[in-house]
Design a protein around this nucleic acid. Structure first.
Lengths: 228, 228
DNA sequence: ATTCTAACATGATAAATGTCATAGTTATAG
DNA sequence: CTATAACTATGACATTTATCATGTTAGAAT
């Protein structure tokens, strides 16, 4: 007996529009994969021919630059789909997807998705809306990159991580990113990121618990991220 | 007699998937508008409730920042649709759309688009692909903003303008942007943009003909925009 | 436990870019 | 045809951020 019906992805993603029959079809065509922290789900330039459902774990979509820095475009967590854009555009992946925490993902072949897209209006609308959501976020990120300082972007990103992933029992952020990855998210040098974290620590905006981070003064961080 | 059938937008945009019957339906529901240079089609925060077809002219999608700078997200030209994203997301516009050169646009009400989306698979796929295209571009822009210098981004943007809009008989770029708008596209201060244009002029990469720009050494510009 | 490696941290310095001031130029309204 | 505003241009300077160097710490492997 398959479990697609109960799967978190089915509850949160565009797939929630599928009916019983479609879910059965889905369950029969999907394949499940475990990806260890650090491993890739797919690499930039690969032809994926389908989408990945994130059942568990956290991943990053990133692009490696010529100078060796890895720019992170988006983090994905359980419940989300991955690789929709390149599948729909019929193009090789523009970004690499790698696990930041051990992941469990299911692969759904393109043919299935296209079938759902053509036969289920709610599904196609959902899928469309999720791409639109990504687009809006990307445009807003672009604006932030230009109009905000590194300090503001760091504050903003910490708040976003807190919002999207929550905190552990000890108040530390649940997503565990290296300083380098955090730098990659805000678009700055690793050293600059570390330096600013130190500053924030001294200002008691955050607390550094080993490599983990606690947001101590969320209001101040918010003010900082929005200030003129 | 309406002319939607012959319209350039119908030939270039997602609307090319519409059949005769649908085009007639479209022609009966659309309204045509003339927008003068500098005027807005819609402003950030407005609820548009439909999409705009660009029949003629050039427009910019931009967002005004708190410090008064206008960040340009995208230029649109004849044949393109405008406002698809916010319509699909059911949200007020995230960006303002303004004319850079006198424009002629048609407004198509949301109900029509949704009807086509639900009844014409090819149309919905086209629409989806166009949003995906925007997303890919936006992600690549984001990466460029972080990984390239202002100089490189200027070179890249000049090439893109040349590519997308072409040149006049005197070789000057066809889109006429102010230095401020150009700065808004590459995400820098107007003065920095002007200064770099001067530099490029001295290096004979471009020629400044009054306010217009001629690309003199496209290969060198390309090299510059890609160099490490 | 010891060594080794990757991650974190910080100082010194350089480079890129923004800001402010000021002046010349062009377009446009009256 | 002038006056006025908007745009273009350039210099001087301040600030931000990247880069390079170096040291420290923490975790993994032997």
């Amino acid at each position: 007996m398959n479990k697609c019906d109960q799967c978190i992805v089915r509850q949160l993603s565009s797939l929630k529009a599928l009916n019983k029959e479609e879910v059965i079809k889905l369950a029969n065509s999907k394949t499940t994969h475990k990806i260890k922290k650090g491993e890739a789900i797919f690499e930039e330039g690969e032809v994926t021919n389908g989408v990945f459902c994130v059942k568990d774990g956290v991943g990053k979509l990133s692009k490696l630059s010529a100078n060796g820095k890895d720019q992170i475009i988006k983090l994905v967590k359980s419940g989300e789909l991955l690789g929709q854009r390149s599948m729909i555009s019929n193009e090789p992946a523009n970004l690499s997807a790698k696990a930041i925490a051990d992941m469990e993902v299911c692969f759904i072949p393109k043919s299935e998705i296209i079938h759902f897209f053509n036969n289920n209006n709610q599904f196609s609308l959902n899928l469309m809306q999720s791409v639109c959501e990504d687009l809006k976020e990307s445009e807003n990120d672009k604006i932030a990159l230009v109009q905000k300082t590194v300090k503001q972007r760091l504050a903003e990103t910490l708040l976003h991580l807190h919002d999207a992933f929550g905190e552990n029992a000890d108040k530390t952020l649940k997503v565990q990113l290296t300083r380098e990855e955090l730098a990659g998210m805000i678009g700055t040098a690793t050293e600059s990121c570390i330096r600013l974290l130190s500053d924030f620590n001294k200002l008691e905006l955050i607390e550094l618990v080993g490599k983990k981070i606690v947001l101590k003064d969320i209001k101040a961080l918010k003010r900082l991220s929005e200030q003129l």
